[in-house]
């Protein structure tokens, strides 16, 4: 899967989890401060991605997630480790 397609797939999944339309999610917007995501919903996003891509994301990585771009970077990092 190319990067663009992966980013779009992640955006779709995040949008579904946080129940905000995709076109309202700016990739650089702070999910917590600007989109009203609480910390547990943040974990749920990662839980959904973990399930979708079988990533095994450790807890300490959750603290570095603030934006959709951070999430995309995280997924790419873990997918590349699997290769």
């Amino acid at each position: 899967m190319n990067d663009e397609k992966l980013a779009q797939e992640i955006k779709t999944l995040v949008s579904k989890v946080i129940k905000i339309p995709e076109d309202k999610i700016d990739a650089n917007a702070n999910l917590f401060a600007e989109l009203g995501v609480d910390s547990l919903l943040g974990v749920e996003i990662i839980a959904s991605l973990d399930k979708q891509y079988d990533l095994d994301v450790p807890e300490e990585k959750l603290k570095n997630i603030n934006t959709l771009n951070d999430i995309i970077g995280l997924v790419k990092e873990f997918l590349s480790k699997k290769k």
């Binding site: 974990v43 990662i46 839980a47 959904s48 399930k51």
Partner: peptide
């Protein structure tokens, strides 16, 4: 059903 993310939460706990 594909939304069940329990495995991740259980792992964190």
């Amino acid at each position: 059903g594909d939304q069940d993310t329990s495995a991740y939460w259980r792992r964190l706990l």
